[in-house]
Nucleic acid binder design. Structure first.
Lengths: 252, 252
DNA sequence: CGCATGCTTGACTGAACTCAAAGTCCGTGG
DNA sequence: CCACGGACTTTGAGTTCAGTCAAGCATGCG
């Protein structure tokens, strides 16, 4: 699970100048601006004059918490590898799963406006985050504020992601939601350089159900139906998609 | 409907220095940075050195479109008054209502990342928008990039709003959703300086249903139930809330 | 090996959807 | 001024689908 981002970065060429930083770095505790930009897929038209700032990493073990609701905002995070779960806990005690951040996703952007994080983030697998400290974010003059602009852009992208997620809980049929969920996961794995048709879900049925606003049991049943239809094979969290087209069909 | 923001701005004092701009401006076609900041409720710690830039307005008549999916990004908009509807239209043709922007809300932030707007916005009532052109947004050096930071902050806030909306479609019971929707609307009207317990909804039952992921009929029935319980009175789109506590109770 | 956790499956129930009809408000045009 | 048409809303009846409760099954960990 550890250094998968190596093979993925060689599998997919970013359209930027592709400086020879393709080899796995020995010291994996700091990342360059270029690395962060590649992770986010942020490719500005004009080259960024790197000022040599190195972004610190933060390792989160599976099951551990990365961010907490109410915690003071101290920066944004970019997922370098791993899988996490973002959720909100209401006063009533129940949880709402908002997203499943993976490689290249931005975390903590909901903390900017109130200066404190407004959601919980826990790691589903061992994960590695790159921190963009607020001190760096809000330092005027730094690299022509290219970092701020990047964060800006990434936040906008996350809003779009969230809208996608939102749309998931909008359709009527539970099978359609699950099918759509699987297809989106598939796309995300493909984006990360992994197989689009064979992957392991990092989250439980309960989390999926919560995310899709249906119950765990309904998720399980939907998986079974899709399996019986021959569209996918499911064994625990191992998914194999036999027909993306059929999946798309079921989405309605 | 027109100049309601006058009474509201005298009813609520923004914590900023409150320069004597309280009178209704004669020329309502341009807004100052200070006005925009007040609308957004953005109050930076250190005073912003205004560079005198004036933001243009854009009037939208009820039923007309303000932003279109696919249209190239040309800036962010802040609602000065009115009521609008943000939605996404899928390839299948069906629509998903994302938000009901009103005074002080930000529009168009989903356009930053792909450089084109990713949602449709139409006016439900005659509305007035203040435009923050992308040329101004991305001009380095302008007022220490205070505008960019404001936009930044406002985007983060909109993400939080969206999470609230998201949470609406998560609960099980339709009555709870409708109750919550009403309470949130009530809060928003109060924030704008209007009555929290008596207001007119700008949107149709169909739009509410779409927004809450339930059918028009279910919305109507929920309204009827709440009315019969004595919690609210409903006549068409006129709402009167008799007990916020009862409403909160029903939310569960 | 035994327990805890997560997953699957079944039977039943209830809530929301669909289809349908009637009532209300509003603007338009005669 | 009133009649008409259209859009919006309300209400009803029947059906479907997802939730609830419960039991059984795998898996992995101690």
């Amino acid at each position: 699970m550890m250094n998968l981002q190596v093979e993925s970065s060689s599998a997919r060429l970013p359209p930027s100048l592709m400086k020879p930083a393709m080899k796995p770095e020995r010291d994996d505790r700091w990342s360059s601006m270029q690395e962060v930009m590649d992770l986010l897929r942020f490719y500005p038209l004009d080259d960024v004059m790197s000022d040599g700032y190195k972004f610190p990493h933060r390792r989160i073990k599976a099951g551990q918490s990365a961010l907490h609701m109410g915690q003071p905002f101290d920066g944004l995070y970019v997922v370098r590898f791993g899988a996490l779960k973002t959720s909100i806990t209401y006063a009533t005690g129940d949880e709402h799963v908002i997203a499943f951040p993976m490689k290249g996703d931005l975390l903590g952007f909901d903390g900017v406006c109130e200066n404190q994080y407004l959601s919980d983030v826990v790691a589903l697998k061992d994960s590695d985050l790159i921190k963009i400290p607020s001190s760096v974010l809000f330092t005027p003059g730094r690299a022509c504020n290219e970092i701020e602009r990047m964060a800006y852009w990434a936040m906008s992208r996350e809003i779009v992601h969230e809208q996608t997620a939102y749309s998931l809980s909008h359709q009527a049929k539970s099978e359609a939601r699950v099918a759509r969920f699987l297809r989106i996961q598939s796309e995300r794995f493909a984006d990360m350089g992994y197989s689009a048709n064979r992957f392991t879900l990092p989250m439980s049925r309960r989390d999926i159900g919560n995310y899709l606003s249906i119950t765990m049991e309904t998720v399980s049943r939907a998986f079974s139906v899709l399996d019986e239809l021959g569209v996918i094979s499911v064994v625990r969290r191992e998914i194999e998609i036999h027909s993306q087209d059929a999946l798309r069909e079921i989405e309605g």
